[in-house]
């Protein structure tokens, strides 16, 4: 292992990747999208969860990728896979209850963990048209649990979504069940400031862990809705030298998804 550059600070993306990797348990079936979730999945597979079975919406099942991919349509992702199928097959694994965990990014998130990746502005005449649901709604609806990864600011953490693309707890307790959604819903929101979870009584977001040097007030200041009372707050995981080496030198040496280029 080569010496890490001591001048290079740990970036928010690196912290988030490490926190996201922690959510993957060895043996999980994990539905993974482009970006930080991909980095987190590679990291988990290389460390504590070598038995994770990755699934991608392009139809790739249980690969052993050696290089970071530009997206789920990139053939780098298919390397070593045990099955290559179609999109319908991959998504049917979600509906069939085979997927333990999924990861999502978002443009907006509300207090119940609902997400918007469709539009900013009115739906039929949007100010910004975003890419759309893709598999996000499917993952959030049908994976046994899901994790959202995004940076934290008041434009993203909003009281009311401009469009509800992807279900968190919808309107609160009982709403997912009423909608017939099979998955248990969101379990974690990983941000650059804190790691949030959901109050089991109210299904609302709350702070669970803070990164060193970040205060609860600083987190509240970046959130557009009331985060409620925090319980006992833990310390968010700080990347170890071993994890940093993997992220910087092995998984994403070109800084495609993490590192200085993105910071």
């Amino acid at each position: 292992m080569r010496e890490l550059d001591p001048r290079r600070e740990i970036s928010p993306d690196e912290r988030m990747a490490v926190a996201a990797a922690r959510e993957i348990h060895d043996g999980d079936v994990a539905f993974i999208g482009t970006g930080l979730p991909m980095v987190a999945a590679y990291l988990a597979k290389a460390t504590h969860a070598p038995g994770v079975r990755l699934v991608f919406e392009s139809g790739i099942v249980d690969p052993e990728p050696r290089e970071l991919a530009m997206g789920v349509g990139d053939y780098k992702l298919a390397h070593g896979s045990t099955k290559i199928a179609g999109t319908a097959y991959a998504l049917s694994l979600l509906q069939g209850g085979r997927v333990d965990i999924g990861f999502l990014g978002t443009a907006e998130i509300d207090a119940f963990g609902n997400l918007n990746s469709t539009v900013i502005g009115a739906y039929r005449k949007p100010r910004v048209r975003l890419p759309g649901s893709g598999g996000a709604n499917d993952i959030a609806s049908m994976a046994k649990r899901f994790v959202t990864i995004c940076r934290m600011d008041r434009r993203r953490f909003v009281e009311k979504l401009q469009y509800l693309t992807t279900p968190g707890f919808l309107t609160g307790p009982g709403a997912r069940e009423a909608a017939g959604l099979p998955g248990a819903g969101p379990v974690r929101v990983i941000t650059d400031l804190a790691i949030l979870g959901f109050d089991p009584e109210t299904n609302r977001l709350r702070v669970e862990e803070l990164y060193p040097g970040i205060s609860l007030d600083a987190v509240r200041a970046q959130c557009g809705f009331d985060l409620g009372e925090a319980g006992s707050i833990g310390e968010a995981p700080v990347p170890t030298p071993g994890q940093l080496h993997l992220l910087r030198d092995v998984i994403d040496p070109e800084g495609i998804y993490i590192g200085p280029k993105r910071a």
Partner: peptide, 15 residues
């Protein structure tokens, strides 16, 4: 029949 999309604007807000 399918499970996803329920409860969201994808089915609530028409294009």
């Amino acid at each position: 029949p399918m499970r996803a999309m329920a409860g969201t604007d994808i089915v609530a807000v028409p294009g």
